[in-house]
Design a protein around this nucleic acid. Sequence first.
RNA 1: GGUGACGUGGCCGAGCGGCUGAAGGCGGCGGUUUGCUAAACCGUUAUACGCUGUCAAGGCGUAUCGAGGGUUCGAAUCCCUCCGUCACCGCCA
Length: 424
Amino acid sequence: MHDVKLIRDDPQAFDDALARRGLKPAAKRIVELDILIRAAMTAKQAAENRRNQASKAIGLAKARKDESEAARLMEEVESAKYDLAQLPETEAAASAELEEILANIPNLPAEDVPDGADEHGNEKVREWGTPRNFDFFIRDHVALGEGLGLMDFAAAARISGARFVALKGGLARLERALGAFMLDLQTNEHGFTEISPPLLVRSEALYGTGQLPKFAEDLFRTTSEHSLIPTSEVSLTNLVRETILAESDLPMRMTAHTPCFRAEAGSAGRDVRGMIRQHQFYKVELVSVTTPENSSEEHEYMVHCAEEVLKRLDLPFRTMLLCTGDMGFQARKTWDIEVWLPSQNTCREISSCSNCGDFQARRMDARYRPAGDRKTRFVHTLNGSGLAVGRTLVAVMENYQNADGTIAVPPCLVPYMGGMTRIG
RNA sequence: GGUGACGUGGCCGAGCGGCUGAAGGCGGCGGUUUGCUAAACCGUUAUACGCUGUCAAGGCGUAUCGAGGGUUCGAAUCCCUCCGUCACCGCCA
């Protein structure tokens, strides 16, 4: 959500920022509505003031038993109410239109985000590790998993349809090990507090983080008013909704290991094979709530917390700065981390770390009070995957495969695998 | 799911339909007194928005007593719906 005052003060800057995202100008109508709303509000408040003054006087007149004065004042109230008749509707209609417009406008890109139409405009920031040289014919994770009899897409499809999988034995254990490993790293070494949040959330929460109203078709909705979380960013970030935090509480760093559910409505035909794009997957999420002054620094910190997982797993990756055209709705700046997948001979996204500025905070009404200050300010919120467990499982399988189709367990995971060093 | 009770400011807790944005207390902040601490005393202590003002200080106003509607000249107080909390019962991991 955007600050109307900022748009009012510099409509051109707002439209320029939208243009960087490839969006049409919107400031003109916003400013018109803002003027309309404020005029109606001022007139309404004046009429309400008349009404309130007269009503108070009626009480006093009745106390004096001055019925004629009371009757005269009641007419005064009637007249004020007549003036009041249309104003609230005018204001409400304009406010609704303004809110509708604002709710659907994405966050403005930060200054240092490169312009670009799509992922081709992204910039490589750094890379780490060297892809392994295989002296045998490499398999992708599907061939490996099915070959071992530990990954069953067919059975999952009979139960749930496409884009589901059932992992068995060593692979199920590997998935659990990865989640536990990531969670331990982020909590023990990086200062994030482990949270076990709700997986079903109300639309208010989804609106707060920006999934609604625009991206309803990406969500699984239940028959109640709940939706399944597409990411625990929703639950974790909304933990501070409608609160005023003390500056000393910041940064507030939270992490959770949860399933994520995505309808993938617009992805028909993409990544149809394997575990890359599923309706359900586990993810360890990182969320930071911080001050405007510290959010950029915190953003850097979070990417490094995510990258550290891949370093410990010794998986090659590169970190990309997303261009304006590839960023999500809520983000003002995003780094993606892409892990090396031998079977695809390329890197695939395994983490996305975004600074949302005060965009979500405004939607959630999440504020903090600077130390020694009376006025509250909106917090800045950041989120990042630390990491997507399903895709990490794929990366481990493919990068650690042996010639015989078995999979070596990365050393840092061995303790989490009960000492097992090889799967299959 | 059933029955009953209840949602008031940072917290506790008053509140006959009419100067109640809301008594009182605690806590917080500022000050006086003080060798230090404690105590006592005085003052102060919500948020959002609009108008005004140099988008300052300040002033005026509107709204907010879980949320949204309604009744009324006037609602924290009456009615309805929703959300939530507590207690007991039923069912259940």
